Computed example of a mutant assay.
Amino acid sequence: MKSTVLTFVLLVTSLFGFAQEEKGITINVVIDNVASDEGKVLVSLHTADTFMRGGGIQDLESTIENGKVEFTFEDVPAGTYAIMALHDVNENYRMDYEADGRPKESYGMSGNEMIMGPPNFADAKFEVENENLELAIRF
């Protein structure tokens, strides 16, 4: 009898363990100072390994309404990340530059540090732990 009860308890416990699959964190991003509704805003969630090296681990895009866009990154595992955003006015999916090397299109990143020169991960990084996040990015 004890072994039957023990077997039943172990079975139920293991079923609950599989049923409670852990989901990652949700990161909501708002950008509300886009210069115009032309084009799209592109955002990428990056690790230190992907930052400034092409696409992120999640890439999203949105049309712009009244100078505002909102994005949601879902099922993000715990870790250290940065978000980069670009107002891609001509929708060519890349940053365009003036002849002197300055960006033609607006951009921003988590941390909202706007420095001379290329962005760096240390200024943009944030931690994902066990709670959903709300971030605002400025261009």
Rank of each mutant, 00 (worst) to 15 (best):
N28I: 04
M84L: 13
V89Q: 13
V69C: 13
A124W: 01
E105M: 10
F8M: 12
G108I: 00
T26Y: 01
I31H: 03
D123Q: 11
S110H: 02
G117Y: 06
E22G: 10
E134C: 07
T13W: 13
P118S: 11
E91I: 09
P77V: 00
F139Q: 07
D59E: 14
G54P: 01
N112S: 05
A99K: 09
P118M: 09
V12C: 11
L6S: 14
V34K: 00
E131C: 04
G108S: 08
A82P: 02
F126S: 06
A136N: 11
P118Y: 07
D96W: 07
S3T: 13
E113R: 15
H87R: 09
F73V: 04
N28A: 04
A85Q: 01
Y97A: 09
F139D: 03
I31E: 04
I137C: 04
G108Q: 03
V69Q: 04
S62R: 03
P103L: 06
A82Q: 00
S62N: 07
G17Y: 12
M109Y: 04
E105L: 10
V89H: 08
D88L: 13
N66Q: 14
S106H: 09
R53T: 10
M84D: 03
L135S: 07
F51T: 05
R94P: 06
T47Y: 01
S44H: 03
F18S: 11
A82F: 08
Q58D: 04
N120D: 14
A136Y: 07
T7H: 09
L45F: 07
Y81G: 11
Q20F: 12
K2F: 15
V76G: 02
D88Q: 11
M1V: 03
A99C: 06
V5Q: 13
E134W: 04
F121K: 08
E70L: 05
F126Q: 08
Y107S: 14
A85F: 00
A82T: 09
M95I: 05
L42G: 02
I57V: 14
L15C: 15
Y107W: 15
E74N: 01
D88R: 12
N120H: 11
D37A: 03
E61M: 11
H46Y: 04
F8R: 10
R53K: 15
A19Q: 11
T50S: 15
I137D: 06
E129W: 00
T7S: 14
V128G: 05
D100Q: 02
Y97E: 08
N112H: 09
G79P: 00
A82I: 07
M114N: 12
V9W: 08
E98H: 13
F139A: 08
P77N: 04
A82E: 02
M116A: 12
S106Y: 01
D123E: 09
I57H: 06
S62Q: 06
E98G: 02
M109I: 00
S14C: 15
L42N: 05
S62D: 07
K68I: 15
E70I: 10
